[in-house]
Design a protein around this nucleic acid. Sequence first.
DNA 1: AATGCTCTGGACCAATCGGTCCAATCATTT
DNA 2: AAATGATTGGACCGATTGGTCCAGAGCATT
Lengths: 201, 201
Amino acid sequence: MTRRPQNTRDRLTQTAARLFQRSGYNGVGLTEILTEARAPKGSLYHHFPKGKQDLALAAASWASDGMRDMIAASFNDAQDFRAGVTTLCHKIAKLFDSSPQWETCPIAATLFESPDNPTFRDHADRLYESWIEDVRGHAERFGVAHPDMAADTLFIVMQGGWQLARARRDSNVLRRLPEHIPWDRFQPDGECGLTRPDPDR
Amino acid sequence: MTRRPQNTRDRLTQTAARLFQRSGYNGVGLTEILTEARAPKGSLYHHFPKGKQDLALAAASWASDGMRDMIAASFNDAQDFRAGVTTLCHKIAKLFDSSPQWETCPIAATLFESPDNPTFRDHADRLYESWIEDVRGHAERFGVAHPDMAADTLFIVMQGGWQLARARRDSNVLRRLPEHIPWDRFQPDGECGLTRPDPDR
DNA sequence: AATGCTCTGGACCAATCGGTCCAATCATTT
DNA sequence: AAATGATTGGACCGATTGGTCCAGAGCATT
């Protein structure tokens, strides 16, 4: 949230991230990015030799870092896993309200437009998995029953909820997201055959 | 699944739907659509006066109808709501496996690239709500506790699951989707104050 | 002051974009 | 057979696309 991105590279990355989120990778031209970032074309191809593709990868990574910060902020000082999830949902809802342009998952908008591009696919996969792994870490820390599944559930519900909130133009969909999660399956005394991995600590 | 779409209009619609799903609205040029549909430019602007926009709306509607057919086929001869959901998830997983190009929700890919275009937004909203309303109808018919919420949950989980399956390139994510749904909240003898709407039948 | 970098500015390019226009053709109806 | 409207074929258009290229500005270190 720096008010003045110093170097041209960061300015390009963040401007591109914002515009890609709004209109998708193919929906934004280099001219538009360059104009808004107040940078000439030469700078772009100096910092990003492969042009638009490199820029998209950098923009997606930057956006992903923002999401990971939000995940950390939500879970770090939470009482339990469920509280962390609730906080995260509210944070996302607030973000949804604050900017009408934040309307697509930044990763999906930037990297999911060309299924034939393996570089984009792999990068998106890696970024998504980093979110899920972060959440799984917190789930383990709080001792939930199936941390892997809990992390997957949260990801699924967040992505789907985002989509529904967008269609309905209603951030409350995101705030009510915890209601769609099967909490009893994640309680430490789960009914499943799996035992808790680490009781103490 | 007709092998030979008769008239040019249908051929254009279906080709466009397929290509938009693959690369998004802005990722496909008219030339590509015209070539694959074996139609000249004059035909396009005869059947779709507003050009690409009209074509996108028609393509999204067509794709949406396919999804609604799938929903109907899954729930119509199901024993209960949960069985219908499971069948639907397996059908979607099969679809995911069958064509590597079916990689984005067709509605999102076609209509969600320009947030500033209210026509697209409204159309997408309407199509999504028709899916949800269909599912809600089946939920009511099977007497689940909170049909509105059940339908929302299914939509959210399907959309998010789709995304995760795409990132992991694994259709089993879709098959395991029922595990992420809080079924106990939808049982007729729910813990909530609401009573069942229709006990017999 | 001179050198050797990084970085910027923008002219320029071929290709493609969505869209227009109209003559030719097709299928009906009279 | 003639006439009529629906449909097709494709040439053509200006605008924009992502990308190339290089002169020169800026800024260190020598």
